[in-house]
């Protein structure tokens, strides 16, 4: 019960901050813009696709429909969303230290573990809302704007997914993307427990993600051995949800590594937070 109240408090605090809406406002503005631009620039692509594959397949609806648009936007944005999530996750502990409000909050008869858990839960709920809104906006608006139909995926040739199958694939893709973003938020929380200002954790989170992304994508033999163990290697694993057949083994192996990283970062963050002297 206390955890519910504490999580309520944390959500209240998160949604009272302007920074929590930056990403939502940004996407509300930019996704329709991309969908409009996508509609304007795809008429010749559509013609080319139709002329090249219509001899072999019957494609229901436009090949550049809402599904393809959502797929295109997902590719474009999964590198930007971590920054927007780090703005909130990075502030969750450090912001309270900077404001001095921890001094007030932590004197109440509640354990540090409860405070920590409520903050983590609230951050993850925010992460879910963010990803859900992003999905709803890209897929929902994409389908309304550009209509539904079969989805064309270019992987080892051309894969045509029926619209009902495409929708399921999107849910799978969003789930794995959400888990990746939970890891991003966990890293931001980890940095947030270490410092007393909210800027450091945002920079720290992005620096770590960029560094790991670079190492995980370098085509050098020396890094090949460690790449399977780097979380950023799996940041684009959502794409596999559109493969045929879906490589579940690879997807869950990636998920396992992401989950173990989440546990590791949150575990260290909890140890730091429990031992931390609140002096500010």
């Amino acid at each position: 019960m206390i955890l519910v109240k504490l999580t309520q408090n944390e959500l209240y605090k998160i949604f009272s901050l302007v920074r929590s809406y930056i990403g939502i406002i940004l996407f509300t503005g930019i996704v329709p813009l991309i969908l409009w631009g996508y509609g304007m620039g795809t008429s010749h692509i559509e013609g080319q696709i139709e002329s090249s594959v219509s001899d072999m397949f019957f494609i229901e609806g436009s090949p550049t429909n809402g599904f393809t648009a959502a797929y295109f936007i997902m590719n474009f944005f999964w590198i930007h969303i971590p920054f927007l999530l780090a703005l909130v996750g990075g502030d969750i502990f450090a912001g309270e230290h900077a404001n001095g409000t921890f001094r007030v909050y932590a004197t109440r008869p509640i354990s540090r573990v409860s405070i920590f858990t409520s903050k983590v839960l609230a951050t993850m709920i925010y992460t879910f809302i963010f990803v859900f809104y992003f999905g709803l906006l890209t897929l929902g608006l994409g389908l309304i704007w550009h209509g539904g139909g079969d989805m064309l995926v270019f992987h080892n040739g051309v894969l045509i997914l029926e619209s009902s199958d495409a929708l399921v694939r999107f849910f799978i893709a969003y789930f794995f993307s959400f888990m990746n973003m939970v890891l991003v938020s966990s890293i931001a929380i980890f940095f947030s427990t270490m410092v007393r200002n909210a800027v450091g954790p945002v920079i720290g989170t992005m620096a770590l993600i960029i560094f790991i992304l670079m190492v995980s994508s370098l085509p050098l033999e020396v890094f090949k051995g460690i790449q399977p163990y780097l979380f950023a290697t799996y940041f684009s694993n959502w794409e596999q949800a559109f493969f045929d057949p879906i490589p579940w083994g690879d997807l869950f192996r990636g998920l396992g590594l992401v989950a173990s990283n989440i546990v590791m970062f949150l575990g260290i963050a909890l140890i730091i937070f429990r031992r931390k002297d609140i002096l500010s």
Partner: peptide, 26 residues
């Protein structure tokens, strides 16, 4: 209950909201 050092608050919230947040805990 303790008031340690100077009083600090969630400055973007009202006096009532600040009270509510702490009151909810207990």
């Amino acid at each position: 209950s303790a008031l340690v050092d100077r009083a600090d608050f969630y400055k973007n919230l009202s006096a009532y909201q600040n009270m509510k947040i702490l009151g909810r805990i207990t």
